[in-house]
């Protein structure tokens, strides 16, 4: 069982972000949510490690509780 990697795994992080954005560009909120759900399942299976998945869920939940002050 591995540990969740939180340092960057990609030499070009901007390209990854753009790829994920492109995947949902022009989609309705519902369609994008459905896409994300499929993506989560596909990636979870690819990772194939329940412990890493748990750590990822933990991190996602924790960061969601932060109140972002999005300044202009």
């Amino acid at each position: 069982m591995g540990d969740l990697v939180t340092t960057s795994n990609f030499p070009n992080p901007d390209a990854v972000y753009v790829t994920l954005i492109d995947a949902r560009r022009g989609m309705s909120e519902a369609d994008a949510a459905a896409l994300d759900a499929r993506l989560v399942l596909i990636l979870a299976n690819h990772i194939g490690d329940l412990e890493v998945l748990r750590q990822a869920i933990g991190l996602a939940r924790k960061t969601g509780q932060t109140n972002w002050a999005l300044g202009e």
Binding site: A33, A34, A37, R38, V40, L41, I42, N45
Partner: peptide
Amino acid sequence: RALRNAVLNLARRCDFARRM
């Protein structure tokens, strides 16, 4: 339900989802 439906949609194509 959204996650459940995602499993069903993937099940047509992927073994891992069929088993869920």
